[in-house]
């Protein structure tokens, strides 16, 4: 009897180990359309839909986790979740700490938004979210950088006059500008920044990275990634050719 219990316990244990481990996907949940919290309180957005599809193709069991942007990389490397899908641009600095899959979003155009045409984006005060490529760009551009923890606060800073302009991904800013009733407007030309957006993984997780890479390749090849891009970012957005090259429209 005792033996029986032991065997079943051992079986249950090994079965648990053989079962596909859940892949925990970390995201910020505050950067529409990439990722945000919907009315039902769930994580939604381009990356949610994309991530779920990638998991399906890679035959992984995925679960979404929210984490603050500031501590999103430390929590990944210490193993609290396994991937970052949070509109994170692939940069050399980040690549030293974590690994990225190939980009699933073409190199993004960032843009300046201000309340008037006259805003000085190279000599004035410009807001950006902390630890983003935009913040790095503003710091180098000669403007005075003011950093905020969330994207929402960067917009508020422009609205209340604390900053002359904000630099962020154009796709994040577009719906806000559209619905501001003329209060906010794009100024200057879009600034191309970063090497596209990819999924961040631990450097030691080569196998998982391979799976996601293959899934992204297959989505690029059959055009389903382009459909998703168009659904979330509009018809004008840059897409991928079947061989993975970027097509700008």
């Amino acid at each position: 009897m005792k033996n029986l219990i032991l065997t079943t316990a051992a079986l249950a244990l090994t079965a648990g180990m053989a079962m596909a481990d859940t892949v925990r996907m970390g995201t910020e949940g505050a950067y529409p359309p990439y990722n945000f919290i919907n009315d039902a309180g769930e994580i939604d957005g381009f990356e949610r839909e994309l991530g779920d599809e990638l998991c399906k193709r890679a035959e992984l069991d995925c679960e979404w986790v929210k984490n603050d942007w500031d501590s999103i990389i430390p929590n990944l490397v210490s193993g609290n979740y396994d991937t970052i899908a949070a509109g994170m641009s692939i940069t050399d600095e980040r690549d030293e700490v974590i690994d990225f899959t190939q980009d699933y979003f073409p190199p993004t155009a960032s843009a300046y938004v201000a309340t008037s045409d006259a805003a000085d984006v190279t000599g004035g005060v410009v807001a950006a979210q902390t630890s983003t490529i935009q913040a790095g760009h503003v710091a180098e551009s000669g403007a005075t950088l003011v950093e905020f923890a969330t994207p929402e606060e960067t917009i508020a800073a422009v609205r209340n006059g604390e900053a002359d302009a904000v630099l962020a991904d154009r796709d994040y800013l577009a719906p806000l500008v559209e619905e501001s009733g003329g209060e906010l407007l794009f100024i200057g030309d879009p600034v191309p920044l970063g090497g596209g957006i990819g999924m961040g993984l631990r450097e030691s997780d080569g196998e998982l990275r391979g799976k996601f890479d293959a899934a992204i390749t297959s989505m690029k090849a059959d055009g389903s990634l382009n459909e998703m891009l168009k659904k979330w970012f509009g018809e004008e957005t840059a897409t991928y050719g079947t061989d993975g090259t970027v097509v700008t429209n």
């Binding site: 648990g16 481990d21 193993g79 631990r202």
Partner: peptide, 17 residues
């Protein structure tokens, strides 16, 4: 391993599953 902290699956807290 570099920046990563890696323990075996059974030692994960809470377990991956």
């Amino acid at each position: 391993q570099g920046n990563d902290f890696l323990v075996c699956q059974a030692a994960k807290l809470p377990l991956g599953t």
